[in-house]
Design a binder for these strands. Structure first.
Lengths: 122, 122
DNA sequence: CACGTACTACGATGCCTATCGTACGAACCG
DNA sequence: CGGTTCGTACGATAGGCATCGTAGTACGTG
C-alpha cells in the first residue's frame, strides 16, 4: 500500500470524464474501432493486458493526434484513463464491455488479428 | 435451374460493383455498422434471412439517403445487391463475412439486439 | 408508346473528424 | 528554480459524410 498516498499525491487532481457503463453505445464502440490507429491501440492494450501509458505507443502521427484518438476511445467507453504522475495510463474497460456486449471485444480482437495475419503486417 | 434465363432476363444488365471477398476490411465493416440507420438495415436483413428489396425498408430518411446507406453497406462488403426488374434486392454476405471474421456478424447482431432490448426500443 | 414504380445521379449544405503545429500546463529531476 | 518529459488546448485545414431535393434513368405493365 501507501502507493497512492505517498508517491502519487497528484493522482486524481486532473480527472477525465468517462461515460457510465449504461451510457456506452454499440455504435460508438464500433466507430471507435473503425479507425486503424485506434484499432491498433486497442490491440496493443489487449495484448499487454494491463495499463499502458500514452507515450508507450509509437504511432505514425503527432502527439496531438494521439491524444485525440485516446480521447475518442475514452468517450466511447472503450478505455479507462487515469493520470499517474505525468503519465496518463490507459486500460481496456473489459468488464463493462463484456457486461454490455458479451463476446464482442474478443471477437473484434480476434477479427483484427486475423486480418493482420492475412494482410501480412502482424 | 432456368431461374435466371427465363424469369429474370434483366438480372445482370445493370451490375453493381462489389468488393471481392479478400478486399473486405474489418475497419470498413465496423464503420458500416456504426451508423444507426445501417445497423437497423442489417438487423432486418439478418432477421429475414433472405433478400429484401430497398423499398421494403421504412427508414426515417429520404430515398436518396437510403440509397446512400445501401451503397455504403455494399462497398464495405456487408451486403450483396442485385437488380431484379425494377427492384434492387439486398442480401447479407454471410458466407464471406463468416469466412473472413468467424463469429463477428453474429456477435454484432447479438450485441445490437441486446442494446435494443436494454434501451427499450426493440 | 404512355404511365407508374423503383432507384440513381448530382449538387448543396452543414457537421464531424483526422491531421498538424504551436503554445501551454503539470509533474518529476537535479 | 531551471530543465525535461508528458500530455493538453486551441486554431487551422482538408476531407469525409449524412442529409436533402430535384431531375433523370431503367424496368414492367397496360
Amino acid at each position: 500500500m501507501a502507493v497512492v498516498s505517498t508517491t502519487t499525491p497528484a493522482a486524481g487532481s486532473r480527472d477525465l470524464p468517462h461515460p457510465v457503463r449504461d451510457d456506452i453505445r454499440l455504435e460508438g464502440v464500433l466507430h471507435a474501432f473503425s479507425d486503424p490507429m485506434r484499432l491498433s491501440i486497442v490491440r496493443e492494450l489487449a495484448a499487454d493486458g494491463d495499463e499502458l501509458s500514452c507515450s508507450h505507443f509509437d504511432l505514425p502521427v503527432t502527439k496531438s493526434t494521439t491524444t485525440h484518438h485516446f480521447r475518442v476511445l475514452r468517450e466511447a467507453g472503450v478505455i479507462r484513463q487515469v493520470y499517474r504522475g505525468t503519465a496518463k495510463m490507459n486500460g481496456l474497460r473489459r468488464d463493462d464491455l463484456d457486461d454490455l456486449f458479451p463476446g464482442l471485444l474478443d471477437t473484434l480482437l480476434t477479427a483484427a488479428a486475423r486480418q493482420s495475419r492475412r494482410l501480412g503486417d502482424g
